[in-house]
């Protein structure tokens, strides 16, 4: 296998609503920014892998919207309808195999164009679950309840974790939400303890010889049905994490960015990844600061990459997830090339 490195990253500022930019314009913004930063251009990109959701975008074949700014016509391009962290596996495989030299990875999400709760409801079993009004937020509530119960913790730990994320997001110019109301949303979770719905995009350029390499990854999928998992446990996350660390030959990382859809997940995923206290977790504010759909996990990779490239640590972990309350996890280990 050929080594795969990140030649550059870019992300938009994330916010609640971007009516000024349609999907194509959002993708154009982030891809042009990536090219500006790296000095690259379309004619040097061999292949394109994107991540987006037909359901979220309200159109089938959601990658059509971004193919012109990505320069996809005439090239080998494909989409993963999962979080961008999973799409990165597909992209990295294209480089590692030697089949392509450079790959543009693009992920986008615009929560403002649809009804996130209704779309989430439609993701559950139509016969037995949808009629009870289940969606991503209420499922997060169930998980937070199980988490608190199993650990014998009080709801105040959720508020504390949310406050820490908000403080970190306040220093991140790309973050969407820096503070939210402490009003009950999905018991025991309050509004400020649930990640926001954001509009935004992220792009990466993969190839050879960049400052940061993709050293290893691991991914695992759990049962879709909430009733088949104990939501108070980190599920398959430890397995994905172990696989990533083993592949990279790394025992402990210096920085970690995780997709936490609630402040209970901030705590639960930290536990599942086995991250000790000394590891800086979500210095960007994480998904609690901005959650632009399927771009959320790719933003985690971009954040870790930028920190390592700046010399803030030598190894880092980026985590993305797909499905409800951590059904599928993807863990990447990044390493700065010395």
């Amino acid at each position: 296998m050929k080594p795969v490195s990140i030649l550059g990253v870019a992300q938009t500022k994330h916010c609640a609503r971007r009516d000024d930019a349609n999907y194509m314009e959002l993708a154009f913004e982030v891809i042009q920014d990536l090219f500006r930063k790296t000095g690259w251009s379309h004619d040097r990109v061999d292949t394109i892998i994107s991540a987006s959701s037909d359901f979220w975008d309200g159109r089938t074949i959601s990658e059509i919207a971004i193919q012109d700014p990505a320069g996809a016509p005439g090239k080998s391009a494909s989409k993963v309808s999962m979080d961008g962290a999973f799409a990165l596996i597909y992209a990295a495989a294209r480089i590692a195999s030697g089949a392509f030299k450079t790959c543009l990875v693009v992920a986008h999400g615009k929560a403002s164009e649809g009804e996130p709760r209704a779309i989430a409801n439609a993701g559950f079993d139509p016969l037995f679950q949808r009629p009870i009004g289940i969606d991503d937020h209420t499922a997060l509530g169930l998980q937070a309840r199980r988490f608190l119960e199993k650990r014998g913790m009080l709801g105040s730990v959720l508020a504390e974790a949310a406050a820490q994320s908000a403080a970190a997001a306040a220093k991140n110019p790309n973050a969407h939400r820096r503070a939210a109301k402490h009003v009950l949303a999905a018991d025991p979770l309050h509004e400020d303890e649930i990640a926001p719905d954001s509009d935004g995009a992220c792009a990466l350029l993969l190839g050879e010889g960049g400052p940061v390499e993709l050293a290893g990854f691991g991914c695992a999928t759990d049962a879709h049905q909430l009733g088949e998992r104990d939501l108070g446990d980190p599920g398959v996350l430890p397995r994905a994490s172990l696989e990533a660390h083993r592949m990279a030959g790394v025992r402990e990382v210096d920085v970690a960015e995780i997709h936490d859809a609630s402040s209970a997940q901030t705590l639960l995923w930290r536990e599942g990844l086995g991250l000790p206290e000394r590891v800086a977790l979500n210095p960007s504010g994480g998904a609690m600061g901005a959650q632009p759909g399927f771009a959320t996990g790719l933003v985690r990779v971009a954040e870790v990459c930028e920190r390592l490239a700046r010399g803030e640590g030598r190894t880092g972990l980026a985590h993305g997830m797909t499905g409800f309350v951590g059904q599928a996890h993807c863990v990447w280990i990044l390493r700065r090339r010395s």
Partner: peptide, 18 residues
Amino acid sequence: AVRATPELHFRYAAGRYG
């Protein structure tokens, strides 16, 4: 077989050019 007529609403941003 259970019949369902789910409704989803979207508001597509036309963006600057659209």
